[in-house]
Nucleic acid binder design. Sequence first.
DNA 1: TATGAATGAGTCTTCATTCAT
DNA 2: AATGAATGAAGACTCATTCAT
Lengths: 217, 217, 217, 217
Amino acid sequence: MKKNISSQEKDQKIQHITECAEKIFYEKGFEDTSMDYIAMKADVAKGTLYLYFTSKKDLYYAVVLRGLKKLEAMIVQHTQKFKTGFEKTYEMARMYIEFFYSHREYYEFIVEYESHRAKDAEVNPFVRACYKESGKLFEILCAYITQGKEDKSIKESILPQKDSLVFWIQTVGLLQQLYLKEKLYKNMTDITSSEIIERHIEMIASFLKNDSTGQEG
Amino acid sequence: MKKNISSQEKDQKIQHITECAEKIFYEKGFEDTSMDYIAMKADVAKGTLYLYFTSKKDLYYAVVLRGLKKLEAMIVQHTQKFKTGFEKTYEMARMYIEFFYSHREYYEFIVEYESHRAKDAEVNPFVRACYKESGKLFEILCAYITQGKEDKSIKESILPQKDSLVFWIQTVGLLQQLYLKEKLYKNMTDITSSEIIERHIEMIASFLKNDSTGQEG
Amino acid sequence: MKKNISSQEKDQKIQHITECAEKIFYEKGFEDTSMDYIAMKADVAKGTLYLYFTSKKDLYYAVVLRGLKKLEAMIVQHTQKFKTGFEKTYEMARMYIEFFYSHREYYEFIVEYESHRAKDAEVNPFVRACYKESGKLFEILCAYITQGKEDKSIKESILPQKDSLVFWIQTVGLLQQLYLKEKLYKNMTDITSSEIIERHIEMIASFLKNDSTGQEG
Amino acid sequence: MKKNISSQEKDQKIQHITECAEKIFYEKGFEDTSMDYIAMKADVAKGTLYLYFTSKKDLYYAVVLRGLKKLEAMIVQHTQKFKTGFEKTYEMARMYIEFFYSHREYYEFIVEYESHRAKDAEVNPFVRACYKESGKLFEILCAYITQGKEDKSIKESILPQKDSLVFWIQTVGLLQQLYLKEKLYKNMTDITSSEIIERHIEMIASFLKNDSTGQEG
DNA sequence: TATGAATGAGTCTTCATTCAT
DNA sequence: AATGAATGAAGACTCATTCAT
């Protein structure tokens, strides 16, 4: 009868480390975070880190993946309360943004990890998982818009594939900007982040929404 | 009136170093660039670098600032060829995007330096100058939109301050996303960056453009 | 009389571990072999290794000892087929060399463990056993030469103690050299290891052999 | 007028570090020597080590090379005092052995560095230089034996290439054995290293020497 | 007996910064 | 003003050994 720490215990340990690492990476970014510090904060020896993660990058991507999964869960759960494609699309955007406010720490990763792109993408399983996760999110959005056209809540002229991608990128980019340059934008005007986001959503909604619903019927 | 290396000579030296550093930072990014290497490429001693820049970051921000200034020059020069506020606004967006394609190296900085934001912002004069430079650009956009409302090329309902900020951020964010996540987006669909940008500009234009020009007057 | 893992079972375990370790040490050398890897390959827990061996070095010397014992067995078995002291001596040399070709892995140890010499010699029982084992081998050689003088197959002028030691050391050294510096020697000339060994044996044989057997008496 | 520490000063520094490293490598061997310790003993910062040597191995091979060069110098200088090929050959062997006694520290390297062979051989300039240096030594020996055959001081039957290689390897191997296993051999008999060496040289000399000199003329 | 998770000292290496010249 | 040798703190990662179970 081996000692074999139960898979459960092991998962707890992994989660514990990931959580600690998350906070630190969030505060300091990848480069300015040392394995020593993570170990200290997680209250384990440095070697233990390497027991569960093969490298610093590995641990980092594990954290990113965790954020993406939480995001997906939130979105899926929330949007299923709504009916029309327009509503679902609209709520998904809201949700994504909501996530930005309530989990800024994940957003940090989602933003930053991209700079480690390319090279790692092919080899690291965590990176691959991250890409896959992002893909899922996009497919959901795309599906909602398609549905919206079918149920007439979204304009006929909208191109689901292309426009969902444009909205997606605009929104991600906008949030990233607000996140990164809060300070800069504060210096420019006295308009708040919330106002900017609202206006952004308004623009998208007005572009999507089918106002002539039922008229022709 | 002896050796007194003329202020001119000094400026030349600074410019020379900045140019060399720029190329290297572009290729390798901040973390992967060493002062040793910059010194070697600039053909000066490492100590000389510290004669003109107080730290590696200082030199980095000097490079960023240089990029921003070039960008501003390009935009100002180009937009003055156009008349209406709408055209100027539209061309400014085009110009910004054009810059993205023709000077990816500066864009790299504009994107990357943001990650060092905050902490340095208050203290480093170069960072302050960068912020100021960005502010200028925004003010130009804002002025164009205002002008557009006056000359009726832009809708009455547009809010110059707020909407220019939204467009600005959307555009910067979109480009940043395309830059950082090219690979990711390529995996998602087969729509090209150009197509995304075009659609983005279309959306903004359609939101801004006053189609009822003069009609009701 | 309960669990009492029989001494036999214990010995089997020790042997199993030693065998596994042997292969690995051979392939990778002492420094590049980790206890983790040995444990994995032996299919036991790392802790188990320390149950039977007090340290990595201990395990290493156990492996060396094993090699020496095999060598001794081979030599003893082979030489008893021959009669005269000269033949026995000659065959012992041949055997030692044969061992070198057919069990390079043991040779590796015999060579390498020497570098850890001295320090460990006094304390480690395995090291002591190794020394003792080597002593046995030498005594056998010495006895053969003595016998050779008695049976007139070996020259009268040979000094059994001293010359057996010289031959012994020459041969061990020669093989070690060939083993370590194959590459180097290959660069120097195009003479093969076999040729060198043959010539070496010829020299020794010519030095030992009594050609005037009984003739002049 | 640059500061440019004169090439001389630089060489002194390199020599100083090499000397310190030599002692330590000698005492502890490659693996058990740390760059930290070398730096401490050399009274420089660790970084300084890397200013002059690209890696630990590099420094190590630099030390080995130094030993080989000293050895060559000693041999060349000494043997030129002698006339016949036999004498030169004989004195070269003596000299090599003498070196063994007076510079045991170099011998350690000459012996040990072989274990790092192969892999580094192609890339590291120091390793290449070591190989080259060893080659020189062998060629000298070979030339002496050839000369000996010409001047009739060495037997006609000797094969310069092959036999010089055999002697060379025997001698190197013998010394290595004495060096490594002093302790072991001391346990076996009470014959001293000197006696063993003397007998070894006797054997070689008797094999080489042409006793029938001039007889037939 | 056997396990294997945990440890943490120790390794090589890098590089921004300083300072004597 | 310019140099570049010297520094040493900091980094990621390894692995023999221990010990609670």
